[in-house]
């Protein structure tokens, strides 16, 4: 996956290097600018079994800052924020690969280096008894639960890095 482009960044970024489960590495630039979650909207995407994006709705495009063309055929971890611990994603994949519904609070990275906060639910798409992909729906999170999750993630991240 391509590194983030400094020309796309708005504000003063910090640089991180992320390593994903498939071994690929990406340089990302992160700012402290939050894009508030819009009232009443759902962010919807679908991926294939490998987590490659096959469908996004308009709210996904607006919130991520990417165009639809930039998102389709990319791994869903294009949104991975360095403040999210790896263990959270491992839990997500373990859950959905077992055919179950996963939900949790997620900090997502935007194309411009900013972030947005969501409550995400991911379910396996089962057709004729087989998992053919995943649907993810994100909605505006409870501020209290989001704050609790971010505090927990900070702790988990520290443990992962130590």
């Amino acid at each position: 996956m391509k590194d983030m482009n400094l020309d796309d960044i708005v504000g003063n970024p910090r640089e991180y290097e992320l390593t994903f489960y498939d071994g690929s590495v990406r340089k990302v630039f992160v700012t402290k600018i939050e894009t508030p979650y819009p009232d009443g909207k759902l962010i919807v995407s679908r991926t294939d079994k490998a987590g490659i994006i096959t469908h996004v709705n308009r709210a996904f495009v607006e919130m991520s800052g990417f165009s639809k063309e930039e998102l389709i055929n990319q791994p869903h971890y294009i949104l991975r924020h360095p403040d999210m611990p790896k263990a959270a994603y491992k839990d997500l994949w373990d859950t959905v690969e077992a055919g179950n519904k996963w939900h949790g609070y997620v900090k997502n990275l935007r194309k411009d280096g900013g972030y947005y906060l969501v409550y995400a639910t991911v379910i396996p798409n089962i057709r004729n008894g087989e998992v053919v992909g995943y649907t993810s729906v994100r909605r505006k999170p409870s501020p209290r639960k989001m704050a609790e999750a971010l505090a927990l993630y900070a702790q988990m991240l520290q443990e992962e890095q130590s």
Binding site: V122, I123, N125, R127, T135
Partner: peptide
């Protein structure tokens, strides 16, 4: 139809 059912499941 399946897509909408999946969506309803997530909600």
């Amino acid at each position: 139809a399946e897509f909408m059912i999946d969506l309803m499941d997530t909600l």
